[in-house]
Nucleic acid binder design. Structure first.
Lengths: 351, 351
DNA sequence: CGATTCGATCGAATCGATTCGACCCGCTTC
DNA sequence: GAAGCGGGTCGAATCGATTCGATCGAATCG
């Protein structure tokens, strides 16, 4: 107790007190190398007497060239990124896979302008998650740091390992179902098209300038079946936004769409709510297709027809890619598929 | 291009190429100290020629004694901790407050046994978030590292800055409202009592062994008004768990409770759902009180009567405490209050 | 019994920066 | 013209560990 200085004890201090060299003390803590039992005990005793908490992580990282940290680059505020159940599922998978390796997740909310942190944050690898905007910019910055980069559902980028989802094809299959049922007037409710997250009708101009890869791929898939399909973009993947979008599409004079392709389940639920509020029954008066198939704890009583994606597996795949990169391999990209899950929200259009 | 070795360039390499000393090159990047404009340019030029991405964060951290990282110790899997809207709101506040300072959040899901990471993760401070179980153990470990510790709603701990909520008092006020309305048979749906998260009726034994501070405080507050109140503990703060708890409390022979005090809004929603499924109208046949007052995007159409807590502010307060600690101050703890928000889910009991 | 091996330990170099004090030089100031 | 000053640069120490190669005694082997 008495010799516990008010400064953090170092390994050398412990070694000195135990009467051994720093090298030997280091071996005791790192476990790499033979140490006599008696010595080990003396060192540990000295450590606990000094209140030594183990090797300084920073110093160890410097020497070893590994921080044990994986950055997760998300958009926005932390909370927003994690508000989406699909991201949460992904995090579950990612965390799982990395925890085994003792890797921690450093969350890097990233907005254009604040890129300083990306350059200065200690990490061994980075996972780019839904960086719809200016992905290229951040990638460039990170690439210079020569750390492995894994991107979730991003356009192909040199030197970046892609973890992909067949967004276009899955949406196409969903759209085909609608067409087979007889639908012709189909409207889209898309995810935000860019960081501005404008809540507005789709226009060729807006689509041309869109930066959100996932949203655009899903639009593309829908158009393969309904080439003229249009719709509105939501400001976020939430029920509230889906509701607003739903009102915009349904509360109009003239011919309403008979089906809505929503780009997330939350948006779908919102659209359904809007429909019901307008006196439209789902699926009798309106079919609604979702995307994600994530657990929507308590959010709705409808069993959505949706394109269920393997979100946890997406995270796991990313985690495995990170691990592979860290041992020097160049992991192959992964392409995952979503599966059309038939629920109770689509039906033939009313005659 | 040609002299870009396959190894990461260092500051010295840049300095050498620019024909200056490492010290001067360092000044260029850190900005602390005068550098002639011409020199600065030469250094930056050399840096970009070598593809230098800026000072190695780890080395910088070692020298400066600061990592720029704040650990957030949560329970469980990442996803679970973030599934609770109240934690998300807290993260928003915390992230906001820390981002200004350039601090990143390192997420440390912590389960008994895996405490290795807590010892080895580089961080300048740690925020303990809902560490119901074995808090003492992790605190001891972290305290040895001499880093500032901030705990959200935890029992008082030496050397740990508390960010508290008046859980007991708030619940008491909610309970008083119920009593004033005439309720006598009141049941509790509590948050998990410990890491086992047993979904089971409350018993004196279980309560005695409970480790979840928040849950116990809220129980205590309720008992100040209804000393004999009992109920069930949920396995998580979710609608599904609330539903199960609600069934357990309501689907019974004999006298049902006329009111339920749920320890979170999600649990309250679940309980309401259970009630309605049993043909009980809320609030006519059953009053339900929630806790949190967080945004429940699209989860329910009921306007909950609840104890709204300032979750974002809780995060901000934690963030401020972290910042204060980092400049050497010993921040005072903060005690926040929840406010009874009258919704449409409580009413006098049916006569 | 000499040679070899092995286990235990240590010294010194190293990881990649930051920072303090010294130094040089050109200018002002009395 | 000497002293003083301050901008600009550099050398060397330092942060706290890890790790490689060397050393040394004891045990094994032929």
């Amino acid at each position: 107790m008495s010799d516990t200085a008010n400064t953090r004890p170092t390994l050398s201090a412990v070694a000195a007190r135990a009467g051994v060299s720093a090298s030997t003390a280091s071996l005791v803590f790192s476990g790499s190398g033979p140490v006599a039992e008696a010595t080990r005990e003396r060192v540990l005793e000295a450590a606990s007497a000094l209140g030594y908490a183990g090797p300084n992580p920073t110093a160890r990282s410097l020497r070893r060239g590994r921080t044990g940290i994986v950055g997760v680059v998300t958009e926005d505020r932390l909370g927003d990124a994690f508000r989406d159940p699909i991201n949460l599922a992904l995090l579950d998978g990612l965390g799982d896979e990395l925890a085994d390796e003792g890797l921690g997740l450093l969350v890097l909310p990233w907005s254009p302008g604040s890129r300083a942190d990306l350059a200065a944050a200690p990490m061994d690898a980075a996972v780019l998650l839904g960086c719809s905007a200016d992905l290229a910019g951040s990638v460039e910055l990170l690439r210079r740091r020569r750390i492995p980069l894994i991107a979730i559902e991003a356009p192909p980028l040199d030197g970046v390992v892609p973890i992909d989802l067949d967004n276009a094809d899955a949406t196409r299959r969903g759209a085909e179902l609608l067409r087979e049922l007889g639908h012709e007037r189909v409207a889209l409710v898309t995810l935000p098209l860019d960081i501005d997250r404008l809540r507005a009708p789709l226009t060729p101009e807006r689509e041309a300038e869109a930066t959100a890869y996932t949203a655009m791929e899903r639009i593309r898939g829908a158009r393969e079946v309904f080439p003229d399909a249009t719709g509105v973009s939501a400001g976020a993947s939430t029920v509230a936004e889906g509701y607003v979008a739903g009102r915009a599409l349904l509360d109009v004079p003239g011919d309403r769409p008979t089906a809505i392709i929503a780009q997330s389940d939350l948006l779908a639920v919102g659209a359904i709510r809007a429909a019901e509020e307008l006196g439209l029954a789902v699926p009798t008066d309106l079919s609604v297709l979702g995307f994600d198939g994530a657990r929507l704890d308590g959010i709705t009583s409808h069993v959505l027809t949706t394109l269920a994606q393997p979100a946890v597996e997406k995270g796991r795949a990313a985690g495995r890619a990170v691990r592979a990169s860290l041992v020097g391999e160049m992991p192959a990209g992964v392409a995952l598929g979503a599966e059309l899950r038939r629920g109770e929200t689509v039906a033939p259009p009313r005659a």
